[in-house]
Amino acid sequence: MNTAPDLVMPTTIAATDPAKAAAAPRIRLSSHGFSIDHPDPELGEQLMANALGAADREAMDGILRQLVKASVSGGSPDEVNLSFMISMVKSIKPRDSIEAMLVAQMVSVHVMAMRCAHHLANAEDIAQHDSAARALGRLARTFPAQIEALNRYRSHGEPAITVQNVSVGDGGNAIVGNVTQHASVIVSDKNPASAARNAPKPSGSRRRRDSADAKRQAQP
Rank of each mutant, 00 (worst) to 15 (best):
M1W: 07
A4E: 03
D6E: 09
I13W: 00
T16A: 05
T16I: 10
T16G: 11
P18F: 05
A19W: 01
K20L: 04
A23E: 09
R28N: 05
L29F: 02
L29V: 07
S30D: 15
H32F: 08
G33R: 01
I36M: 00
H38N: 03
G44V: 02
E45A: 01
N50T: 04
L52R: 00
A55D: 10
E58N: 09
E58S: 06
L67T: 00
A70G: 13
A70E: 06
V72S: 13
S73L: 06
G75W: 02
S76F: 08
P77E: 00
D78I: 08
E79S: 10
M85F: 07
I86R: 01
S87V: 02
M88C: 04
V89Y: 02
K90H: 10
K93Y: 10
R95C: 06
D96R: 04
I98T: 06
A100V: 02
M101F: 07
M101V: 10
A104F: 02
Q105C: 04
M106D: 01
V107I: 05
V107S: 05
V109Q: 14
H110Y: 15
H110K: 10
V111W: 03
M112C: 09
A113C: 12
M114K: 08
H119A: 07
H119D: 14
L120G: 11
A123I: 06
E124W: 12
I126F: 15
Q128G: 11
D130F: 09
S131P: 03
S131G: 08
A132E: 07
A133Q: 10
R138D: 15
F143Y: 13
P144C: 03
A145H: 06
E148Q: 14
A149D: 03
L150S: 02
N151T: 07
R152M: 10
Y153P: 01
I161H: 05
Q164W: 05
V168D: 03
V168G: 08
G171C: 08
A174D: 09
A174Y: 06
A174I: 11
I175T: 15
G177M: 05
G177Y: 02
T180R: 11
S184N: 02
S184M: 03
I186W: 09
K190T: 13
P192E: 05
R197Q: 05
R197W: 13
R197H: 11
S203F: 11
S203Y: 13
D210K: 12
S211R: 15
S211N: 13
S211Q: 15
K215S: 15
R216D: 11
P220H: 14
